[in-house]
């Protein structure tokens, strides 16, 4: 009699432990997922962060070398953001950055990648072949950003690189050195973006 009870107790305990283990595993997966999400997300804008964006850029450059799968890289830098920060304070500044983040996020498709590099700098990896289509979209983004605080002349400058066409010189020069390739690409797109910014301000 007691033996039968003990066997049933053990079976039930095992079932409970298994159930609990399943729960434990799902909780652990959820925590891992959340931790991973946190590690690749920019806390303020909820866009991807710099680290993740550069990792993905490296991956896409590797792929483009193998498969000729072209994409467009865009670097954004806000115009007249610093005066807003100085005038209204950091809380307002953060609010503006969040708005910019939302505009960028909804302007691209789910398989494109948008990230905040830091400060008021953003980057996008867009799987769009036609440069004119990209430019149309960027123009719309600029208009929306300019409407965040119309009275403060907030705007955005950007630089565009079509990869691989615009980076053939870099790929030829550096061949397999991925880190240096990424560094050079960033320098190049950054230079294009600043040139555009200066042009817009009438400095060139």
């Amino acid at each position: 009699m007691r033996e039968k009870i003990k066997i049933t107790l053990l079976k039930n305990l095992l079932e409970e432990v298994t159930k609990k283990y399943d729960y434990f595993i799902s909780q652990r997966e959820r925590v891992l997922e959340e931790t991973y999400k946190m590690s690749i997300t920019d806390e303020l804008t909820q866009l991807y962060n710099r680290h993740y964006a550069l990792e993905q850029l490296k991956r896409e450059v590797e792929r483009v070398k193998r498969e000729e799968n072209p994409f467009t890289l865009v670097m954004f830098d806000l115009d007249n953001f610093k005066p807003i920060n100085d005038k209204y304070g950091h809380i307002k500044g953060d609010e503006v950055l969040k708005n910019v983040g939302n505009i960028l996020k909804k302007s691209f498709r789910s398989y494109d990648l948008v990230a905040r590099l830091g400060g008021d700098e953003f980057i996008a990896i867009i799987f769009e072949k036609e440069k004119s289509d990209v430019e149309k979209r960027l123009q719309k983004i600029r208009e929306e950003i300019e409407n965040i605080i119309p009275q403060e002349n907030l705007s955005v400058s950007y630089g565009i690189l079509q990869i691989p066409d615009d980076i053939k010189d870099i790929l030829e020069k550096l061949e397999e050195d991925s880190d240096s390739i990424i560094k050079e690409i960033l320098n190049k797109v950054d230079f294009i973006m600043y040139t555009n910014k200066k042009k817009r301000k009438g400095m060139l």
């Binding site: 107790l9 039930n12 409970e16």
Partner: peptide
């Protein structure tokens, strides 16, 4: 509920049975 699930399938379950676990 958890404790009750450990006693399930036992005829006339008694708290003393849980003294094994």
């Amino acid at each position: 509920y958890i404790i009750q699930s450990i006693l399930k399938g036992i005829e006339n379950p008694s708290i003393e049975y849980l003294w094994y676990c």
